[in-house]
């Protein structure tokens, strides 16, 4: 195992993040505050509680999920797409590193960044609403698993993408709707019955539900099912990445 290489990629990617730390931090803080103004204060004041929880607090896990999913996917996608775009990927390809090491470096850095952003949102949210996290360890575990799985997903997109448009396509067209329809801002039980059934095919439902459970001990689906869903997604992404490197798809002509 070439751990020095993993550390090098990780540090290099993190340095990129910290160089633009202002944008990295300010944008999630601003957008989270906006959500709180709109959903928490304006609309939330008329909703009062959902399943006994203050609406402002209820949307916190969903908001974190939304940002973490988006950030994980876009960061990891850009992380591997950018060297491909400017041509410096040759160096990684010609280095004595294996698939797993390259993935650990890039995905690790992207997941770290979105973890940081998740925690910043949590801190911002706690300024607006009263939050008590009932299962902090489970919360962290969900965060880590989600960030890693979706960073892996982003990594695949970054390898697949042939231009910047494609790079933004999946986050915009897939992740955003899945999160909005995945119960980030409401409980699935608030939907008409037919839609509830459809919602169960949305993988994000399981993520948000499990994550919300770690805050409030309440969930739309069972926690075990949530974990299973994340684990399944993680394994699927790993399998695709292994295949990519084995065949050299889009990487080695």
């Amino acid at each position: 195992m070439n751990l020095t290489a993993v550390a090098s990629i990780y540090k290099f990617e993190m340095a990129r993040t910290f160089r633009s730390i202002f944008q990295s931090v300010i944008s999630p803080v601003v957008s989270t505050s906006l959500y709180f103004v709109v959903f928490g204060a304006a609309i939330g004041s008329r909703i009062d509680t959902v399943e006994g929880i203050q609406y402002g607090a209820f949307i916190v896990p969903g908001l974190m999920m939304l940002q973490m999913l988006m950030q994980s996917v876009t960061n990891a996608a850009l992380g591997i797409y950018f060297p491909k775009f400017i041509g410096t990927i040759y160096e990684v390809q010609s280095a004595p590193v294996s698939v797993i090491e390259i993935v650990m470096g890039y995905v690790g850095a992207a997941a770290t960044k979105s973890m940081m952003i998740g925690l910043i949102i949590l801190a911002t949210a706690s300024l607006f609403v009263d939050l008590q996290i009932q299962h902090p360890l489970a919360m962290l575990a969900f965060m880590v698993l989600t960030c890693i799985s979706f960073a892996l997903f982003g990594f695949i997109i970054g390898i697949w993408a042939g231009n910047f448009e494609q790079l933004n396509l999946i986050p915009m067209l897939v992740i955003t709707p899945l999160v909005f329809l995945g119960g980030a801002f409401y409980s699935i039980s608030m939907l008409p019955e037919a839609w509830q059934t459809i919602a169960l095919f949305n993988p994000v439902v399981y993520l948000v539900s499990g994550f919300r459970w770690s805050f409030f001990s309440m969930s739309d689906v069972s926690v075990g099912l949530s974990l299973l869903a994340i684990a399944g997604f993680l394994i699927l992404c790993l399998a695709v990445i292994t295949w990519i490197f084995k065949t050299g798809w889009k990487l080695r002509s």
Partner: peptide, 11 residues
């Protein structure tokens, strides 16, 4: 930085 990165990449 970029030269150091290359060295690290090669372990």
């Amino acid at each position: 930085d970029t030269v150091k990165f290359s060295r690290g990449l090669f372990g």
